[in-house]
Design a protein around this nucleic acid. Structure first.
Lengths: 203, 203
DNA sequence: AGCTTTCGCTACGACCCGTAGCGTAACTGC
DNA sequence: GCAGTTACGCTACGGGTCGTAGCGAAAGCT
């Protein structure tokens, strides 16, 4: 969440923890109903049953608030252990697609990414609280595949970044730009492409 | 551009073509300096030397204006003929990355995509004026590769869509989310992954 | 108690939105 | 030329959001 003072003062009235949760939930609700551009902080405050000033005391603005509200959605991702690399990839991609199918993720995520192109601090916030946190999935899946002998032991550490960009980018582009569902059929074709490449893709 | 009346009236004062160009250029300029959220239509009108009302007579709002302003950037894409599929892919991906490196494309494109998640008409505008228009690159590259014998004759028409989502998505995610340059080294690794897949990627 | 911080509330100037109204400019057809 | 039609520049307006300031009350600690 937002960066609290490292030596958090033990004196004075403590911040309401329930207010934090209420605000983030209200933000997601507003994203569903209004979308990014029509979402106003005053409206979020009203939904959360909180004064507008309280909101400004905790978040610098709309961008930071939405990043935190969206980041919580991705924590539920888990890589399944289905016994093969292909099945594991298909499983996690389907989960990722399911999250991106939710309207609060769609409208919020892309908007903050757009804003982050002009705000380095915001981009760092996105990277640490969303992207880097989920790279664990790629690492875990690769380790399992190597243990099974499906993948050679990897030496290049940048391969993880490459795979993450390809997987996340493809799913995002499919669901948000092409506006087609990343259903099982698509995920199977994508996984096949990822594993064996274009040359052998046709049988 | 915006949908003009099919039977364009031959009477009355014609719309200034130079104003169109000036407005779109001013929009890109404002995107660079201000970014999406701080861009106002009044400011764009002033930059273009045009009355604000003129702007509203041609575009319904900020979204539509930015889509048109950004779409022009992608028309310069050309698929090179370098003699091999791998080299062709590398060439066009590098061009695509170069466009996405420009700030007016970065902040504008993602923002309108975010807005399009709640506006079907806007998404259609994006698809027709940007996405579908550039799928020609995938088709042309595949045809050349098949003529060279590098790819088997394809029967499944959805493969083109899949490839486009993977390529465009990966480059976008690399440059905008991971915020790392899609330089020659990355493009080579990506192309290799795309062609031979994960299994044979390590040598 | 006394201290400290947060909370809810109200009010405020500043800015942007999108539209209406008007007079003028540009172009066409009679 | 002259009427008809459309686009243009300009001004002005109500309505909404922004982000902040100021206040008294509430909630925790020593």
């Amino acid at each position: 969440m937002q960066s609290r003072t490292p030596a958090s003062r033990a004196t004075g009235r403590p911040r309401s923890a329930t207010a934090d949760a209420a605000i983030l939930a209200a933000t997601r609700e507003a994203l569903v109903e209004l979308g990014w551009s029509k979402l106003t902080l005053g409206d979020v405050a009203t939904r959360a049953g909180v004064a507008k000033t309280t909101l400004y005391r905790r978040w610098a603005g709309k961008n930071e608030l939405v990043v935190d509200a969206v980041a919580e959605l991705f924590d539920e991702l888990e890589i399944p252990n289905r016994g093969s690399l292909a099945a594991d990839i298909e499983g996690v991609v389907l989960q990722f697609a399911a999250i991106l199918a939710r309207p609060e993720a769609r409208s919020g995520l892309m908007a903050v990414i757009a804003e982050s192109t002009r705000d380095d601090a915001l981009r760092e916030r996105i990277r640490t609280s969303i992207v880097e946190r989920q790279k664990r999935l790629v690492l875990e899946g690769r380790n399992r595949a190597q243990a099974r002998g499906e993948l050679p032991p990897e030496s290049d550490p940048t391969t993880v970044d490459l795979i993450f960009d390809v997987v996340a980018g493809a799913v995002v582009h499919r669901t948000l730009v092409s506006a087609e569902p990343a259903d099982e059929q698509w995920v199977r074709a994508f996984t096949r492409l990822l594993l064996v490449g274009l040359g052998q893709a046709a049988d």
